[in-house]
Design a protein around this nucleic acid. Structure first.
Lengths: 85, 85, 85, 85
DNA sequence: CACTGGAAAATGCCGC
DNA sequence: GCGGCATTTTCCAGTG
C-alpha cells in the first residue's frame, strides 16, 4: 500500500519535495553527461570516424568476450541455415 | 538455453526460414501501412494543415482513449503536496 | 502558413475529422501487425531460437549485401586499431 | 566518406582509443548517476511512495518547465474543430 | 546535406 | 523465470 493510501489523503510536502528535487538534480547531471557523450561523437565524426560503427565498437567492448563470441557463432549458424553464407 | 546450444551446432534451415520469412512478410505489410499514413499526412499538409499539430492531436486522442484519468487522484494529491495545484 | 492561420481561426471540422480518423484507422492496423510480429518472435523463442540474434539476422538481410560487407570491414578495422583482434 | 575510406585501410589506434575511452568513461559516470536515481526511487518506495506516480510527477514538472503552451492555441483550435473541447 | 526532432526498436527492470 | 512496461537508444524524415 502506498503512503497515500495509508494516511487518508495527506502527504508530507517537504519529504516528497525533497525526493522529487533530488531526482531532478540527478537527472540534470545525467543529461549533462549525455550531452558530453554526444559531443564526443560529433567530434569523432568531424575527424572522419563513422559514428554508427563507433557505437557498435563500444557496444562490442561492453559485451563480455565470451558472450560476444557465442553470439557471433549463433548469428553465423542462423545465416548458414538460411543459406546466406 | 538456445536451440543452438541444445543441438550441437545445427539448425533446421526450413523452420528458421519459415520464421524469418513470416516476420519479413509482416514487416513489409507494416511498412506499407506506414507509407499510407505518411501519404495522409502529406495530403493533409497539401490542404493547409500543420502536420506537427496534427500529430499532437492524434497523440492527445490516444491518451484520451487509454486512461487520461488512471491514477489521477493520487497524482493530483502529489501535485498538491508539491504546491503545484 | 497553416490553414489555421489563413482563415482567421476556423477549421472545417468534417475535413479534419476525416483526416484524423483515417490516420487513426491506419495506426490501428499497424499496431495489429506489430502485435503479430511480436507473436512470431514469441513462438520462435518457444521453439528454442534466440530472439535477439534472430533480430540481427533479419536486420542483416534487410541491409544491402555490399553495404553490410563495408560496415563489417570498417568494424573490424576499428577493432584492429584498438588491438582487439 | 569516412576516415576509413580516405586512408586506405588504416586508422590511428591512439586517436581512436582516446575517443573510445572518453566515451566509455562518460558512460560509466552516466551509469553511476542512473544507479543513484534508482536508489532514490527505492528509498522513496521504502517510505511509502508509489514510484510509478512519482515518475509521472517528475515528467509533468519537466513538461511544465519546457513548453506546456507551445503551439497550444493552434492545438486547441483543432481540438475544438473536432468537438473535443 | 547536415541537423533537429519525432517515431520505432531494443534493452532492461519490475511485477507476478 | 517470464511477460509486460518504461526507459533508452537508434533510426529516419522533414527542414534550413
Amino acid at each position: 500500500m502506498t503512503k497515500v493510501g495509508s494516511n487518508s489523503g495527506s502527504v508530507s510536502g517537504d519529504e516528497l519535495k525533497s525526493i522529487v528535487e533530488r531526482i531532478e538534480r540527478l537527472e540534470e547531471e545525467k543529461q549533462g553527461i549525455s550531452d558530453d557523450i554526444k559531443d564526443v561523437y560529433t567530434e569523432a565524426k568531424g575527424r572522419g570516424y563513422d559514428a554508427k560503427v563507433l557505437r557498435r565498437v563500444i557496444a562490442a567492448r561492453k559485451m563480455d568476450a565470451n558472450e560476444r563470441q557465442t553470439q557471433a557463432e549463433v548469428f553465423d549458424l542462423y545465416l548458414a541455415a538460411l543459406g546466406m553464407l
